[in-house]
């Protein structure tokens, strides 16, 4: 009976289960008796991409997949939903966080390696990376939108036909680039198009919005190619328009939605769009479904 356990110490992180759920969307196994009580997770490492964007590697041994998210707590400041940007099974998860407010600000200022933050999750359906291993694939990501698809890009960079995998990644400027090491690896393994919205004089890389590169994608059969699009809402809207124009089928396009989320468990209501709970049915949606999700 829950009422008997009126006092609890922080929950414990789940043990690794041998079976990682793949096809069924929705949150992974239950961790604690009271899912609202987060457990302490140690910060193992911090990678600074820019002054505003750091990746925090946190202890976590449970099941999780790319595109899912955790609620990260800084006690007394609040909680923030953050996507999983990297997974080391049985050991850690990476959360790549932009410092924008109360919780994220306190995390950047007050927390270092060895400190503990509080975690609960993972929540949401996430990406089924196995769906993108075969055939032609386009991944388009903007800014912190790279986080949820980093695992997908990593997976397809190891696929047998990695030459058929096209990844367009955009940042605001060269200084805003995230995951530089990954970008270098991906450039070797698959067709990576790295671009920035704007750059100082003398910059040698691509300049222009991600959408600019869609018409030139060397797809042999756009009608069967699959695409994943994650980024700010306008970027997703225009990218999808471009992909459809190129001949991709609506049902072959996936995207990740972002909404205010207070619970991650289908209770608080904030993430609802029409009949959907983004925290349960998403954040990853097929375009056929998401195009009818109106706000």
């Amino acid at each position: 009976m829950p009422s008997e356990k009126s006092v609890l110490v922080p929950g414990v992180a789940p043990a690794v289960s041998p079976e990682v759920p793949r096809m069924t969307p929705g949150p992974a196994a239950v961790q604690t008796d009271n899912p609202y009580v987060p457990w302490p997770a140690r910060i193992l490492e911090i990678v600074s991409h820019t002054a505003r964007e750091h990746t925090f590697r946190l202890e976590f041994a449970g099941d999780v997949r790319p595109g899912q998210f955790f609620e990260v707590s800084i006690p007394k400041y609040g909680e923030a939903p953050i996507s999983v940007s990297g997974i080391e099974p049985g050991r850690s998860v990476d959360l790549t966080i932009r410092n924008v407010g109360r919780v994220t600000g306190e995390l950047f200022e007050g927390y270092g390696v060895g400190d503990q933050v509080l975690l609960r999750g993972p929540y949401g359906n996430g990406f089924d990376t196995s769906m993108f291993m075969d055939g032609e694939v386009v991944v388009m990501a903007g800014g912190t939108g790279v986080s949820p698809v980093r695992g997908v890009i990593d997976a397809i960079s190891h696929s047998a036909d990695a030459k058929d995998k096209h990844v367009i990644v955009g940042f605001r400027s060269p200084a805003d680039m995230l995951f530089r090491d990954d970008l270098a690896r991906w450039a070797d393994a698959l067709d990576l198009i790295l671009t920035v919205d704007g750059a100082p004089e003398g910059y040698e890389g691509n300049v222009g919005l991600v959408t600019k590169f869609i018409p030139d994608l060397p797809l042999r059969d756009p009608a069967t190619a699959k695409a994943v699009v994650v980024g700010p809402p306008p970027m997703m809207r225009f990218s999808i328009m471009g992909l459809l124009k190129l001949g991709l089928a609506e049902e072959n396009i996936w995207l990740s939605q972002e909404r205010k989320m207070c619970c991650g468990m289908g209770k608080c209501g904030h993430c609802r769009i029409g009949q959907h709970y983004v925290c349960l049915d998403g954040p990853v949606f097929n375009y056929v479904e998401s195009k009818d999700m109106l706000d």
Binding site: Y36, S73, P75, K76, Y77, G78, E79, C262, C263, K267, C268, G269, H270
Partner: peptide
């Protein structure tokens, strides 16, 4: 049924606080 999460702390040194959910 909607609610919003809210963290508050009461001491100046920030040692003691609570998480609430409030009707939204």
């Amino acid at each position: 049924t909607c609610y919003t999460m809210q963290d508050v702390f009461y001491t100046d040194n920030g040692k003691v606080g609570e998480r609430r959910r409030v009707a939204a």
